[in-house]
Amino acid sequence: MTKTSHEADVAFIQALAELLREHDLTELQVKREYGEDDSLDVRVSRSQPASVVAQAPTTMQIPAAGGGAPAPGANAEAGVEDPAQHPGAVTSPMVGTAYLQPEPGSDAFVKVGDSVTEGQTLLIVEAMKTMNHIPAPRAGTVKRILVEDASPVEYGTPLMILE
């Protein structure tokens, strides 16, 4: 590609980012064809406001009816509490795809009941073909895994519960 083409691509990406803001979108993906073997694939995304992110877990599980907040861990297995509000929740730092194992066919990084140390890899979130290792924020025990392997996640989506 020439320098002029590169400058045009940067202007194109900036225009896509402006479209995200103007229309309050969270993601755009475009493929620009230049010729037979020359193209540009662009995915531009931004995180959602906290009010929208807080609604995401309701699609993952249906909380049971009832008033008041349960004691920590008391009803976690029954799904009564909102996982995003749990003090041991590990949330996604980005939009991407969550992987529970380093590669297909291998053992998962962790499973329910495992003890983990601070900094130990819990899972990977792939974003734009970059594998981002998600470390344990503190030592503890994996109580719940809230995502399935290869599932899409948003910024702030609860991934696991550590206690």
Rank of each mutant, 00 (worst) to 15 (best):
A139E: 11
A56C: 03
T59Q: 08
E22S: 14
P49F: 08
E33S: 11
R32W: 14
T91F: 07
M60P: 02
E36K: 06
Q85A: 14
I62M: 10
D114I: 00
A139R: 12
A69P: 04
T4E: 15
L162T: 00
I145C: 06
P87F: 00
V30E: 14
F109I: 00
A11K: 15
Q85V: 09
D9F: 14
G105T: 10
L159E: 02
A98P: 04
L123K: 05
L146E: 02
A136V: 10
T59K: 10
A108M: 04
V80D: 07
A54K: 11
G105N: 08
E33T: 15
T97D: 01
V116R: 06
A139S: 13
M160H: 05
E154V: 03
A17E: 12
A108K: 12
E7L: 14
D38W: 13
I134C: 10
S51Y: 09
L100H: 02
P63H: 01
R46H: 10
D114T: 00
Q85R: 08
H6A: 10
N75L: 11
E22I: 05
A136E: 05
V116D: 03
A8I: 02
P152E: 03
L123G: 13
A84S: 08
R144N: 04
Q101G: 05
L159R: 07
M128F: 10
V147P: 14
Q14A: 15
V80K: 13
T121K: 03
S92C: 06
D107F: 00
P49K: 01
V42G: 13
A17G: 15
N75H: 08
M94K: 10
H6K: 13
V30S: 14
Q48E: 12
R144W: 04
V125A: 06
P72Q: 07
L122G: 09
M60G: 13
G156L: 06
V110A: 10
S45K: 05
Q29D: 06
P57H: 02
L100F: 05
A76N: 06
A11F: 15
P93L: 06
L28M: 08
D41A: 13
Q61Y: 11
D24K: 15
A8Y: 15
A50Y: 07
I134D: 05
V44D: 06
E22V: 11
T97G: 09
V53H: 10
V142G: 02
N132Q: 09
S39A: 14
T91I: 01
